[in-house]
Design a protein around this nucleic acid. Structure first.
Lengths: 334, 334
DNA sequence: CTGAAAGCGCTTACAG
DNA sequence: CTGAAAGCGCTTACAG
C-alpha cells in the first residue's frame, strides 16, 4: 500500500503538497499538480481514510441505527437501509450499521468513541430510548419517523395525516357517507408507532368534518386471523360500502378475500389504502392508494443530517413528505 | 473528549501503561491497573477507534456488500444484514455497509482504502463480478451464497441440494410416484441464482433415483400471474397429486388458490416446500417444509471470516448448512 | 506556490 | 513492571 510519502517522493514534492492536491483546499501549480497526479496513478495510491479521519477529526461516516423487533419486522426495512446508504455515499459519507442490541447504550457508545459524525435513527417510536443520549450529547442526528413530542432533533417522516385526509376526501368527494377504517392491531398503537396514531387521528377528524361516518376496525395479528376478520367484516348484508385500509397484512389479503366472496370493487365495495409502492407491487394491489415514500424519506433525512454537519447549529425541524395519491378507480361514485 | 494522555496524567502513569491496560496485552501491576481504571471511569474515557486502527493497522470493521436489484428485492435481505451485523459485533467487529452501486469497483475501492479488514458478500450469483477484485487483491472475504465454480474464497450457503432431496424423499417415502415441481421463473436461472439451479438439479436427480415422475413448472412473474398459473395447474381433472414448491410467491399464494378451488391438503393434493421460516410465519403457510436458515448462514459466514482474519492463510472452503425439515402433515400416504 | 514541523490519539518494540 | 520514543498516514497552520 502506497502512502502519501511514497507519492511525494515519486513526484519530487513534499507530503504537504500531495495533501493539498488530495484535499483540493489549496491552489497548487498546475504543473506540480500534474506531477502529483501522475505519481498517484503510477503508485495506485488511495488515501487511508482512517488516517485522514484522525487528522481532521471527521470520520465522514454516518451511523445507521436500526431497530429490529422480530414481531414487527417489516420488509420495508431493507429499502430504508439501502436508500440511506446510497444517499450517504452520494454525499461523501460511509455508513456504519448499528443494530440496536441494547437500545440507548449502543447510541451512547458510538457517540463517545467518535466513530461517526452523525446518526440516522430508523423506525423511531413514540418514546424512543435512543433519543435521550443523543440530546444529552448534543450529537448531530436525524430521526426517520416521529417521536410523540418534539425532541429537539431533526426528523423526517411521511405525512401520514395528509395521507389520511386525502383518502377520506377521495371517498367523500365521490359521495360516500360512511366507511370502515381498517387499522393496525391495538398493540401497534401501544408500542408507540406514531404513524398509526397520526393516520388514525387525521382520518377520524377529516371524516367528522366531511360528514363521513367512520367505523374503526383494529385488525388482528397473523395472516389467517386477518383474513378471517376481513371475511367476517365483508360477508354480511350490512357490509360496509367503503373501506379505508392502513394495515399491510389486511391490504395484502383483501383482494383474495373479496374474490373468495365473489365481491367486486368498486361495485360492491369501494377501497382506498395507504401502503408502500413496494408492497403494492409485490401483491399486485389494484386499489386507489396513497403510497408511502421510503426512498424519498431516507433521502431527505440524510441530506438534512449532512447539511447540519457542515453548518452552524440551528433549531431542529421536522419535514413531512406528502405522499402521492395514485387513483386506480377502486371508488364508486354514489 | 478525554484522550489516553488525560487518563495517564490523571492516573499518574505513562500513556503506554494506560494502553497496556486498555489492550490487556501486557501484565500491569494490579494496583497501577486499578488507578488507571479509576481514571478512565472518572474521565469517562473511551478509546478512539480510528486512532487505534491507524496504530494497529486493523480497522476491526467488516464490509458488508449488499446487492440490491429492484426486480428481485427480497424481504429476507434485512434479516441477513441484521444477522451479519449482530454476529460481527459479538466478535468485536463493526459493520460498514456497502451497497453495490457499481459492482466490482465498489469492492476494489474499499479494499484499497483499507477501511475494512474483511468483506462479507451477500446474495452471491453464479458469475459474480465482485469476486474478481477480491481474488486479485487476496483480500479476506466470505461469500453468502455460491458462485458457479469454486472461487478460492470461503463460502457459506444453505444446502439447497440436501433440502431438495429431503422433500423428494418425504414424498417418495409416503408412496408418491409423481409430482409437479413449481420453481422460479426462467429469468431467475438466467440471472445465475445458483440456489435455484442447485435445488432443481438435486430435485430432478433424487426424483429419478426414487422413481418419482417429476413435471417442472416455472412460475411466472407477478402475484396475479402466479395465482393464475397455480389455478390453471390445479383446476383440472389431471391435477397433480403432489406439489414440490421452491418459489416464495407461489407458496405464499398457494393456500388461497387451494381454498378458492375448494381443495383440501393433503386429501386432494400433497404439498411440500422450501422457504424461509420468516415467510412461513408472515403468510401462515401450513405445509411441510424445509426451512432456510438466514441467521445460521450469516452467523457461520461471519465466524468463518473472523477466524480467517486471525490466522495464517489456509485453503478456502465452502460450508453448506443443512436445513431442517418441518413436518406439518401436508403429505398424504398413498 | 512549496515545504518543514507539529499534531491527531493510539500502540508497540525497546530500555531500564 | 513502567516509561520514553518512534511510528501508524494523514492534515494544517506557519514560514519562507
Amino acid at each position: 500500500m502506497a502512502t502519501i510519502g511514497d507519492v511525494a517522493r515519486e513526484a519530487g514534492v513534499a507530503r504537504s503538497t500531495v495533501s493539498s492536491v488530495l484535499t483540493g483546499r489549496k491552489f497548487v501549480n498546475p504543473e506540480t499538480k500534474a506531477r502529483v497526479e501522475a505519481a498517484i496513478a503510477a503508485l495506485d495510491y488511495t488515501v487511508n481514510q482512517g488516517a485522514r479521519a484522525l487528522a481532521t477529526s471527521r470520520s465522514m461516516t454516518l451511523g445507521l441505527v436500526v431497530r429490529f423487533h422480530e414481531s414487527e419486522f417489516s420488509p420495508a426495512l431493507a429499502t430504508y437501509i439501502v436508500a440511506v446508504t446510497d444517499v450517504a455515499r452520494a454525499n461523501g459519507y460511509r455508513t456504519l450499521l448499528l443494530t440496536d442490541f441494547d437500545g440507548a447504550d449502543a447510541v451512547r457508545t458510538v457517540i463517545r468513541t467518535r466513530q461517526v459524525d452523525g446518526l440516522v435513527l430508523l423506525n423511531v417510536v413514540e418514546d424512543d430510548a435512543r433519543i435521550a443520549p443523543i440530546v444529552d450529547a448534543g450529537f448531530p442526528a436525524v430521526l426517520v419517523g416521529m417521536p410523540a413530542e418534539p425532541s429537539g432533533i431533526d426528523a423526517v417522516d411521511l405525512d401520514f395525516s395528509a395521507g389520511a385526509r386525502m383518502l377520506v376526501d377521495h371517498l367523500a368527494d365521490a359521495g360516500h357517507r360512511a366507511a370502515t377504517f381498517v387499522t393496525w392491531p391495538e398493540e401497534v398503537f401501544v408500542a408507540g408507532r406514531t404513524y398509526a396514531a397520526h393516520f388514525r387521528d387525521a382520518c377520524l377528524e377529516e371524516a367528522r368534518s366531511r360528514g363521513l361516518e367512520l367505523r374503526v376496525l383494529h385488525a388482528p395479528v397473523g395472516p389467517e386471523a386477518v383474513k378471517d376478520a376481513l371475511r367476517h367484516l365483508l360477508d354480511t348484508e350490512k357490509r360496509p360500502t367503503a373501506l379505508i385500509v392502513h394495515n399491510d397484512a389486511a391490504i395484502a389479503m383483501l383482494p383474495l378475500v373479496l374474490r373468495d366472496l365473489g365481491l367486486d370493487v368498486p361495485r360492491d365495495c369501494s377501497v382506498v389504502s395507504l401502503h408502500s409502492a413496494e408492497l403494492g407491487r409485490q401483491f399486485g394491489i389494484p386499489y386507489t392508494a396513497v403510497e408511502s415514500q421510503p426512498e424519498r424519506v431516507s433521502e431527505l433525512a440524510v441530506e438534512k443530517l449532512v447539511a447540519r454537519l457542515g453548518s452552524p447549529p440551528e433549531a431542529a425541524s421536522t419535514v413531512l413528505v406528502e405522499p402521492p395519491l395514485i387513483v386506480r378507480g377502486s371508488v364508486a361514485g354514489l
